[in-house]
């Protein structure tokens, strides 16, 4: 068993080395396409986090004071329940607000530690009947004057614009990435095909002496899988650069203070990296499996 493992490893690496230029091309293509996939996922996640409070039709949020009385709270709730201008709302209590805060700032533990659930303002996320911005501003102003209300935040045009922008960017990246992933699979297929061609004689002898089909196939499939995995491994540092540079740029922009939430926690970057490795491995395996079944006749 051990000698068989050693055989697979040796044959795979000999073949990778013999085919160096194609191997490098295949690996780099995988790296670039998976970097784009990762960047797209990060930007989307960043935008989602930044605008999390304003999704599903929520146009403005009424933040209550942490020390608002039950009467003050009841009055607001009364208006929300009965006003024809309000389509719906969700109530986020102190505990939920604290949980959300923890998630948003999970990579800044010192910030999370500085607050407790007790000081978090409870809030109402409100979906108005008429989402027109003039109308929203007027209703928001009225709520702002109620006792017990700390502040009212509206989804400004800027937020919508950036949401839109990040959607477009991440979609464009994703389309380019999908095309490139396809190109990588073809390139891996070709590289493995070339490797098979270089070893025709060996394959012929292997068949004649009674090597099983899987024994013949496995080194080639490993080769393709390794292309995919190395490419994905190169895409991981690229992902951290995107996180550090691009997302940080949004975060530090003063234009929209809310976008300080445009941070993606490191845990998400690592999760994405694992996905990229999985995608890389699978693309490599599929590319080489196609080459093996189509061109090897075993």
């Amino acid at each position: 068993m051990l000698s068989r493992l050693w055989y697979y490893v040796r044959e795979t690496f000999v073949s990778l080395w013999r085919n160096l230029s194609l191997t490098v091309a295949a690996i780099l293509t995988v790296a670039i396409s998976l970097s784009l996939v990762g960047a797209s996922l990060l930007i989307r996640e960043g935008a989602d986090r930044a605008t999390a409070q304003f999704q599903e039709g929520v146009e403005f949020i009424v933040f209550m004071r942490a020390d608002a009385s039950a009467d003050q709270d009841g009055a607001i709730r009364d208006v929300l329940d009965n006003s024809p201008a309000i389509l719906g709302y969700t109530y986020v209590d102190k505990a939920a607000a604290y949980t959300e805060f923890q998630e948003l700032f999970s990579d800044k533990p010192e910030l999370v530690e500085s607050v407790t659930a007790e000081v978090m303002p409870p809030s109402y996320r409100i979906v108005p009947a008429n989402p027109d911005s003039g109308n929203v501003a007027e209703i928001a102003r009225q709520f702002g004057e109620q006792p017990g209300v700390k502040e009212v935040a509206t989804a400004t045009d800027a937020i919508r614009q950036i949401e839109d922008f990040s959607n477009r960017v991440s979609q464009a990246l994703l389309v380019a990435a999908v095309v490139l992933v396809g190109v990588s699979a073809l390139l891996i297929l070709n590289t493995v095909f070339t490797a098979i061609g270089a070893r025709r004689q060996e394959i012929e002898v292997m068949k004649l002496v009674g090597a099983t089909n899987w024994f013949i196939r496995i080194p080639f499939m490993l080769e393709g899988t390794i292309h995919g995995l190395i490419g994905a491994a190169l895409a991981v540092p690229a992902l951290f650069v995107v996180d550090d540079q691009v997302l940080a740029y949004f975060q530090e922009s003063d234009a929209v203070p809310l976008f300080r939430g445009f941070a993606v926690p490191e845990g998400f970057v690592w999760d994405t990296s694992i996905w990229l490795l999985a995608i890389g491995g699978v693309v490599g395996m599929i590319g080489s499996a196609v080459a093996v079944t189509r061109y090897m006749d075993v």
Partner: peptide
């Protein structure tokens, strides 16, 4: 049908190795 890049020993061993 010998493999040109393998020695005599390796050619013979190959027949056992691949099974």
């Amino acid at each position: 049908k010998l493999l040109p890049k393998k020695t005599v020993y390796e050619n013979v061993a190959f027949g056992l190795e691949v099974i």
